[in-house]
Design a binder for these strands. Structure first.
Length: 111
DNA sequence: CCTGTGACTCCCG
DNA sequence: CCGGGAGCCACAG
């Protein structure tokens, strides 16, 4: 927190940490909320850097289809699904069921 | 300064 | 329906 070179990352961390339990969001939604819409990759990348260093609930962040694309980066692919199911979500083959119902948009929820 | 890479997303055929 | 390509921004070497 001395250097501000990770300014973008901090924003991602803050948003992800604000995701309510049992809710999920997409990389594009966060990127758009940060103003870097189109740079959804940066959000995922920020999570990679944050993953081992922070207590970021990255498992609440999935791709636009509600698919657990980044589960492989959790160390244990099953951990991501288990964590989400533990919060009341239903996942089949890495695909979140009723994703649109559990979708949490920072740009609208936080407003 | 240039290049490579990435947990994404959209468009086209 | 499914695959491939391009666009995108930030960071490391």
């Amino acid at each position: 927190m001395k250097d501000k070179k990770g300014n973008f990352f901090e924003d991602v961390y803050a948003v992800v940490k604000l995701i309510p339990k049992g809710r999920v969001t997409s990389y594009g939604a966060i990127a758009s909320y940060l103003g870097s819409k189109g740079s959804a990759r940066m959000v995922g990348w920020a999570l990679i850097a944050a993953h081992p260093l922070t207590d970021l609930p990255a498992y609440r962040v999935v791709n636009r289809n509600g698919l657990l694309t980044g589960k492989q980066h959790f160390g244990d692919p099953n951990a991501m699904q288990s964590a989400l199911e533990s919060e009341g979500l239903i996942i089949i083959k890495d695909q979140i069921q009723d994703f649109d119902k559990h979708f949490w948009d920072p740009a609208k929820e936080l407003l």
